[in-house]
């Protein structure tokens, strides 16, 4: 039965968009923690740890997110492990985010001048104090823009979760579109919602950059 696209559908899309946001926020938090570990592992003066981190990054960055998602959602059940769509999407997006955030932050860490470590060391700071009080704060400032850039990408990538049946903004749009038969209106509305989310993120980035004295 075909019906008209009405305000109820807009509300339905907005409610679904909550899941998009929830997925991005959760994946950013989990992936952020993991990515932090990856970034540090990339710069510690212990070669095997660095190799392990490099291998992990290459594996994740070198395979498509959709493939990772399908592997987790469809292949794991074959060996007796079933995961629901939310968990599969969350785990995948987190791992995916950790590899990219790890590299962004690693490059932030390495763009801090070597002399800054030495200046810290010369004052008697321990390696951890140099890292935590001198290098990481500077790396963070440098990393704000590329980090937010990646998160904007991640927002759009959450739409892939629709393909394993997770009802976020894109999946909801498909559902309403087939019920109302007005894809143009539905997808334009969805696109507008994506835009608002991403635009807010980049505004946040500008505010953060101002706050953190990024130019210094």
């Amino acid at each position: 039965m075909i019906r008209d696209f009405d305000s109820g559908d807009v509300v339905y899309l907005l409610l679904a968009a909550r899941w998009t946001v929830a997925l991005v926020v959760s994946a950013t938090l989990c992936g952020g923690v993991l990515g932090f570990v990856v970034a540090i592992a990339r710069v510690v003066p212990v070669a095997p740890v660095r190799w392990l981190a490099i291998g992990y990054i290459n594996l994740i960055q070198g395979t498509p997110l959709l493939g990772q998602l399908f592997a987790l959602f469809f292949a794991l059940p074959l060996i007796g492990i079933t995961v629901d769509a939310w968990s599969a999407a969350l785990v995948c997006m987190s791992i995916y985010a950790s590899a990219f955030l790890g590299e962004i932050w690693r490059s932030g860490l390495q763009s801090v001048h070597q002399r800054q470590w030495e200046a810290g060391a010369s004052l008697g700071l321990t390696y951890r104090q140099q890292l935590g009080h001198v290098v990481i704060p500077q790396a963070l400032r440098i990393s704000v823009a590329p980090t937010v850039g990646f998160l904007v990408q991640l927002v759009k990538d959450t739409s892939l979760a629709a393909l394993i049946g997770f009802v976020e903004l894109t999946r909801a749009s498909q559902i309403i579109s087939s019920a109302t038969f007005s894809p143009l209106t539905v997808y334009t509305t969805a696109a507008a919602i994506y835009f608002v989310i991403c635009f807010s993120l980049s505004q946040l980035s500008q505010v953060l950059e101002g706050r953190l004295h990024v130019t210094r």
């Binding site: 800054q116 030495e118 200046a119 810290g120 010369s122 500077q138 400032r141």
Partner: peptide, 10 residues
């Protein structure tokens, strides 16, 4: 004290 980059810019 070194030739440059001594101070923590942040």
């Amino acid at each position: 004290v070194f030739q440059s980059y001594n101070l923590f810019p942040h």
